[in-house]
Design a protein around this nucleic acid. Structure first.
Lengths: 230, 230
DNA sequence: TTCAATTATTTTGTATACAGAATGCAGAAG
DNA sequence: CTTCTGCATTCTGTATACAAAATAATTGAA
């Protein structure tokens, strides 16, 4: 009796449910990663039978994942001819970065207004861990933390729509940034900029933060634009 | 010989291909409209069998459309429990409008720089047609042209990513705006603001245009916020 | 009567099957 | 040798079928 009562009454609205069907997300994430990491190169036609067999799933859930990624803009749907991995032109990349700058600047300003101290401290923490990766020259971990910091700053603005569109563009750019290997000197300056960003955020100096973010993303474009062929 | 030469050589890269398979887009558009127009109310669970039968298609393409709309943010996917029409909280709506303002202001500034005269003229044309609808009190046509003008201004900025994210938020807000019936006096002021917007654009006065867009979207929030219950 | 447990039904998730379109190839005509 | 046409194959688009999970209904017990 005690037990049953507990089970029905004591449960929170959303229990610690084990994600029963994560297969769908699994396919989605797997495909996305394959595109980002270049395993599926831009311009590649996605053969449903082949890829499905490779992932060990039938075409049905695979096609659903493809439709999802198409809406994300990573894949292009051509009627009766399937899906191809979207290939971004230099202008498109530049435009994405342009929008990203606008969004992050706005997020930064808002963050200066509404962020909690603990939230800012968490960003500082991420930054410290990123510095650590920089010192040990761990590029991949650095890269991930770098993205994480930008996402975290956007999150501080406490605006779901802002976070959504930012994540969307960030995802589309991931593959490009993955390629854009900057040299040591540029890497150092990028780290320095990050340090400035955090400082401005801690001082809640919105204008300064926005300016730094602007410069930071301009440099991101500089770093990346050379690696774009067609 | 002449004919064959013409056929093979004179053809443009992308011929006037009849869209053979528009069914997919048809389902997508139909579903989207059903959500926007409230035929599928927010919070409604989408029964695949039911809706599929209603639309006259099987569950397979329907599910694909649902996944697409889920990525657009109009539908929420709950594992093993299907899809529900996304219900936006007042804060979420406010946040969306906040981002929309940032995006449109940015677009406006860019448009002042890079827009062609003919492009601006086309916006003016849309505006004139909208005025016409206003005079004959044709709300639906007015509404559509209103959206079209905002989209057109964004398009003038010539930035695909910007247009993408703008369209995304615009779509999410469509249903809300569809509800937000403003009274005659507010309607008049909205029209006046539009007139100012076009004038600023024609003068390529970026700051003024941005200011007007800001006010315009603040008012959009004012108009809409009362209609939001939960 | 009320609550819990078990069963029945519905509904989602995935796989398979089939029809139609697109691609590739081979042979015939020029 | 080139080009066009017809055929075969491959691949996409859609429908159907089946398994597992979730929801509803029913029965039994306190």
């Amino acid at each position: 009796m005690d037990e049953s009562k507990l089970r029905t009454a004591g449960l929170p609205d959303t229990p610690n449910r084990i994600e029963r069907h994560s297969l769908h997300d699994a396919i989605l994430t797997r495909l996305r990663d394959m595109i980002i990491e270049g395993e599926l190169a831009p311009g590649t036609r996605i053969n449903e039978g082949q890829v499905g067999a490779f992932l060990g799933v039938s075409r049905t859930p695979l096609r659903e994942a493809i439709k999802f990624l198409a809406s994300e803009g990573l894949i292009e749907l051509i009627p009766s001819r399937g899906a191809v991995v979207k290939k971004f032109t230099p202008k498109e990349v530049r435009d994405m970065i342009d929008v990203l700058r606008t969004l992050e600047q706005h997020a930064g300003r808002r963050a200066c207004e509404v962020a909690t101290e603990t939230g800012i401290a968490q960003v500082r923490d991420l930054h410290d861990r990123m510095l650590d990766c920089y010192r040990r020259r761990d590029r991949l971990a650095y890269y991930k933390l770098n993205q994480g910091i930008h996402t975290a700053i956007v999150a501080l603005a406490d605006n779901a729509a802002l976070a959504d569109v930012h994540a969307l563009l960030q995802t589309r750019l991931k593959r490009i940034r993955f390629i854009g290997h900057e040299g040591p000197e540029k890497w150092a300056s990028a780290v320095a900029e990050h340090e400035e960003m955090i400082a401005a955020l801690e001082a809640r100096d919105a204008d300064r933060l926005a300016a730094i973010i602007g410069r930071h993303l301009d440099q991101a474009w500089e770093r990346v634009k050379h690696a774009l062929a067609d």
